[in-house]
Amino acid sequence: MTQDSPQGAPLLQVENLGVRFAIKRGGLFGEKRYLYAVDDVSFSLKRGETLAIVGESGSGKTTTALAIARLVDAYTGRVRVAEQDVLGIEGEDLRQIRRKVQFIFQDPYSSLNPRQRAEDIVREPLQSLTETSSEDQQKIIDRLFASVGLRPEQKRLFPHQFSGGQRQRIGIARALATQPELIICDEPVSALDVAVQAQILNLLRDLQAEFGLTYLFISHDLGVVQHMCDSIAVMYMGRVVEYTDRRSLFNDPKHPYTTALLSAVPSIDKKRRAEMKRISIHGDPPDPLAPQKGCHFANRCPMATDTCQQSQPALTDKGNGHMVACHLVT
């Protein structure tokens, strides 16, 4: 751990982050429109903790993660990692940040270069981001292979010679190579089968304890999130609708969307299952290119009122740091 920030100060601070994609229509001089994939997203994350971002497909959770890792350009907002601005920097500064922030990708089948050997995949960040000598690189690679549970003789193999779970282990080893402080996990287990999911999640937890890592954990699976994180941000249509610690979110969900999401998590506990009433949300999210002025969730919300159709609720503290963006929650 570096000592350049006081204990307890957040490692990652995201303020009013916005990402938009230009949609051009009709050739060279066509009108330009923007799709706001991430809109006014703020959260912070303390060292050694895990923040989960959950939401359905297209809610902007992956784009948020990519923007923090500088893999997609944000148009507004501020991202700070260890008191250092991330957005707008280039060259050597960006290299420093990349060393601190690493990424684990969703699909282990497409996130490994099929023409690189396993050890070269893990070596790439060492080569590009650090000045380690090649002997030291080899030592680091050997250690990482052991840490993620791969055998030394597998170093020389190509990605297609591994199973999905083993591939994700290589991806994790690559992310760990530069000794980062923050690791962004973009649905790291959603492409794996259930038995392997548990192995990888346990591995991630063990590594967190071993290296003191901080995770930003993206998922659509609340069941997975429940076992991984300290706090949770629920996203819908590019905005955070509820943001609080794990306990209050699971015991006392306030936003109607969160309530519906939680009711969809299967439970094996008979008593809990009986208590829980399944709330289903009908319809699809509205067209992101034609945003309405009210709450984005209003057209699917079972309790929407006129106010919800007219004005967008802000994310406000509803007591004890439980942030909710809903007019109906007081």
């Binding site: 890792a69 497409s110 270069n113 790439e124």
Partner: peptide
């Protein structure tokens, strides 16, 4: 657009490489 190219970008690999 594939993820492994993005992963290389995240690894700080320069454009020429």
């Amino acid at each position: 657009e594939l993820e492994y190219v993005m992963a290389s970008r995240a690894s700080g690999t320069k454009n020429a490489k």
